[in-house]
C-alpha cells in the first residue's frame, strides 16, 4: 500500500509541477465553461437539456484529455530509462500500475471537481435535478477510470508518448462509435455493440435519472454521443431516449431566469416531447 501511495504521490506531484495539469484544466474548463454559459445565457429554451449536454461534452472531452494524462505514465519511463529504476526496486509490478492509475484518476477527479461550479450556479438561480447531476458525475467518473485504464495500457505498449496518446484516442473513439453500428446490424449483434459502447452505457447515467439494468453500468456507458456530433445531425435521434428536446416557451424563458423554473426538475412525463 505504501508503495502504491509513494508512486501515486510522485506522479500526481509531477502532473502539478509540470504545465500538464494546468493546460488540461484550462482546456477542459474553458470548453465546458463556454458551453455552460452559451446554453445558460444565450439559449434559454434549451436549459432543460443543459445538464445533459454539459455532461455529454465533459465526457467527449475526456476522450481527448485522458490519453494526454496517461500517455507518459509508462512511455516516458521507458524513454528516459527510469523504468529500470522502478523495476529494480522492491516493488511489485501491479503496485506500480495501480499507483500510476490512482495518480491519473486523482488528476481527472481534480479537474472534474472544478466543474461542480456549474451545478452550484444552477442551484443558486434555479432548482436543478441533483439526482441527474450526481448520476452524471458517477457515470463520468466510471467512464473516466475506464478510459484511464485503457490509456495506461496504451502507454505501456510504446516508449513514444505521442504514439501512446494516439493509440488511446483511437481505441476510445472506436468504443464510442461502435454503438452507432448497433442500429444497422441484427438485433443480437447490435446489443453486443451497445454493451461495448462507452456512449451507449453512459447515456444511462447522464441523460436520464431513471436506472436501467445495473449490469449496463459496469460496461463502458447511452446516447449522449449525438450531442457531441450535434443533435441535428443525428438521423436516429428518436431512438435515443434522452435526446428528446423539451422546449420552454420563449415567453416563459425570461421568467425562468427570475424564479426557479420547473424545467430543472427531473424530466417529468409532461416534458416528453
Amino acid at each position: 500500500m505504501r508503495n502504491i501511495l509513494t508512486i501515486a504521490g510522485k506522479e500526481l506531484r509531477s502532473y502539478f509541477t509540470s504545465p500538464m495539469a494546468y493546460v488540461l484544466a484550462v482546456f477542459y474548463l474553458g470548453i465546458t465553461g463556454y458551453i455552460f454559459i452559451a446554453i445558460f445565457l444565450l439559449m434559454p429554451q434549451a436549459q432543460t437539456d443543459l445538464v445533459r449536454i454539459l455532461f455529454g461534452w465533459m465526457m467527449g472531452l475526456s476522450v481527448v484529455i485522458i490519453p494526454t494524462v496517461t500517455m507518459g505514465l509508462f512511455a516516458q519511463e521507458r524513454a528516459s530509462g527510469t523504468m529500470e529504476l522502478l523495476m529494480t526496486r522492491p516493488v511489485r509490478d501491479w503496485e506500480i500500475v495501480v499507483g500510476k492509475f490512482l495518480a491519473a484518476v486523482g488528476l481527472f477527479v481534480a479537474v472534474i471537481a472544478v466543474t461542480l461550479g456549474y451545478p452550484a450556479i444552477l442551484e443558486a438561480v434555479a432548482d436543478p435535478d441533483w439526482a441527474m447531476i450526481l448520476t452524471g458525475y458517477l457515470g463520468l467518473l466510471l467512464a473516466g477510470t475506464a478510459f484511464i485504464a485503457l490509456g495506461i495500457f496504451a502507454s505501456s505498449l510504446t516508449a513514444n508518448q505521442i504514439a501512446a496518446a494516439i493509440i488511446a484516442v483511437f481505441v476510445l473513439l472506436f468504443f464510442c462509435l461502435i454503438g452507432t453500428l448497433s442500429y444497422s446490424v441484427s438485433h443480437s449483434l447490435g446489443d453486443v455493440f451497445k454493451h461495448l459502447s462507452v456512449l451507449e452505457n453512459y447515456g444511462d447515467f447522464s441523460g436520464s435519472s431513471h436506472y436501467r439494468k445495473p449490469t449496463d453500468y459496469l460496461g463502458l456507458p447511452n446516447s449522449w454521443w449525438p450531442l457531441l456530433l450535434g443533435e441535428n445531425e443525428c438521423p436516429k435521434r428518436s431512438q435515443f431516449e434522452i435526446s428528446r428536446i423539451t422546449t420552454v416557451p420563449r415567453a416563459d424563458a425570461k421568467q425562468a431566469q427570475l424564479r426557479k423554473p420547473r424545467c430543472w426538475r427531473k424530466p417529468a412525463s409532461s416534458a416528453d416531447g
Partner: peptide, 11 residues
C-alpha cells in the same frame, strides 16, 4: 543499482 543511462526524473 545504477543503470547505464542514469534513471532520473528531470522535473
Amino acid at each position: 543499482y545504477m543503470p547505464e543511462t542514469v534513471p532520473l526524473y528531470p522535473d
